[in-house]
C-alpha cells in the first residue's frame, strides 16, 4: 500500500501508532460491510486523499449530532478536522462569529460551487414562513433552500434533518420538516438521536475511496450501517427466543440481562448497527445499559414509538 506521506505519518507524530491506525481502519471497514481485503484501501483513502471542503449547517437541533461527531476516535476529531476534511463552516467549533462567520460560508460556497459536501443537522421550521428559526437574520427555510442545491451532496446527520425528528413530534408546533421534504431533493441520511459518528466517517471514507457515496436503502440510509435490525444483531436475542423477558428494571431478570421486548424495546422495528459497533469507542449502547431501544433512527420517531415503555 502507499503510505508514509499522508495521515499515517502525521498520526505517528501525534503518538498514534500504525497499529492503532490500522485497528481503526479495520473497524471502519467492518462497519462499512467491506471484506478485510479493503482495510489497506481504507487506510490509503484516509491517508492520501485531498481534504474535501465541508459545510455543516445547524437548523432546529440540539447540537447532539455535532457533539457525537466530536467523540470519534481513530482518527481523533483533530485529525478529521486538520488532516482529512476541511470543515469550512461549523457554528459550534469555528473561530469567527457574525459577519466573519458568514464570510467563511460564502467563501467556501464561492470557491467550491458544486463541489462541497453539505452536512445538515436539525429539521427546518416552516410555520409562519420559517420565523421560528433564523440565523444571521435569514430563516433556516431560506438558508436550506439556497445552500442545498449548491452542494455536491447533502448528508443529513441525525433523525431531525433526515425525517423531522423531535421538532416534528406532535403537534409539531413549528411545522418542522426534513431537508428532503423542504427542498424536494434526495439526501443521504444518517439518522439516530444522535447517530454513531463512525457511520458518518464511514460515509466520508466511502466517498474518498470510491469517489461516490455508499449504497442506500429506500429511506436514504447507507446499507453498511442500516441494513439489519437491532433485533437481528442483538446479543440478548437468545433470551427472546427462550421467552426470557425483563418486566421490572429492579429484578433478577434485569440483572441477568434478559430480553427487553416486554418493557417496550423497539429493536425489531429499528434498522441500525448499534449492537455491532456500540457507542463511544465501543463502550456501550442502550440495551447493554438495560434500557429498551426507542427506535431513534427510524422515520416517524418520535410519535411512531411512543409511549416508549409499552410493548408493541
Amino acid at each position: 500500500m502507499t503510505h508514509g506521506k499522508g495521515l499515517e505519518e502525521r498520526l505517528e507524530r501525534q503518538g498514534i501508532s500504525r497499529r492503532d491506525f490500522m485497528k481503526f481502519c479495520t473497524a471502519l471497514t467492518a462497519t462499512m460491510g467491506l471484506s478485510s481485503s479493503f482495510v489497506t484501501k481504507v487506510a490509503h483513502a484516509l491517508a492520501n486523499a485531498p481534504r474535501p471542503p465541508v459545510v455543516w449547517l445547524a437548523m432546529a437541533e440540539c447540537t447532539g449530532c455535532a457533539e457525537s461527531a466530536l467523540r470519534i476516535s481513530y482518527p481523533w476529531i483533530d485529525e478529521l478536522l486538520l488532516d482529512i476534511i476541511s470543515m469550512d463552516y461549523h457554528e459550534t467549533i469555528m473561530a469567527p462569529s457574525g459577519a466573519a462567520a458568514e464570510k467563511s460560508l460564502h467563501d467556501c460556497m464561492t470557491k467550491n460551487a458544486g463541489k462541497f459536501i453539505l452536512i445538515v443537522d436539525g429539521s427546518i421550521p416552516t410555520a409562519q414562513n420559517g420565523a421560528y428559526g433564523t440565523v444571521g437574520g435569514k430563516t433556516m427555510l431560506q438558508i436550506i433552500k439556497e445552500v442545498v442545491p449548491k452542494a455536491l451532496a447533502t448528508i443529513c446527520i441525525g433523525t431531525c434533518a433526515s425525517y423531522g425528528g423531535l421538532p416534528a413530534a406532535a403537534p409539531n408546533p413549528t411545522e418542522a420538516k426534513s431537508v428532503s421534504e423542504v427542498t424536494g431533493l434526495k439526501t443521504l441520511n444518517i439518522p439516530g438521536c444522535p447517530p454513531n459518528p463512525i457511520n458518518l466517517v464511514g460515509t466520508i471514507v466511502n466517498y474518498l475511496m470510491f469517489g461516490k457515496l455508499p449504497a442506500l436503502d429506500d429511506k436514504g440510509r447507507p446499507l453498511f450501517a442500516y441494513g439489519k435490525t437491532i433485533h437481528d444483531q442483538c446479543p440478548r436475542r437468545a433470551h427472546f427466543e427462550n421467552g426470557e423477558f425483563v418486566t421490572d428494571f429492579n429484578s433478577e431478570e434485569a440483572r441477568k440481562g434478559f430480553c427487553l421486548y416486554q418493557v417496550g424495546c423497539k429493536g425489531p422495528e429499528t434498522y441500525n448497527n448499534c449492537p455491532e459497533v456500540k457507542f463511544n469507542d465501543g463502550t456501550s449502547w442502550p440495551i447493554q445499559a438495560g434500557h429498551p431501544c426507542i427506535g431513534c433512527s427510524e422515520p416517524g420517531f418520535w410519535d411512531k414509538f411512543t409511549p416508549f415503555y409499552k410493548s408493541s
Binding site: 467523540r71 444522535p194 463502550t283 445499559a289
Partner: peptide, 14 residues
C-alpha cells in the same frame, strides 16, 4: 457511556 449506554443522550434513566 459506561452507566448511560451512550453519550450524548444517555438511555439508562427511568
Amino acid at each position: 457511556a459506561i452507566f448511560g449506554g451512550k453519550n450524548p443522550h444517555v438511555q439508562s434513566l427511568v
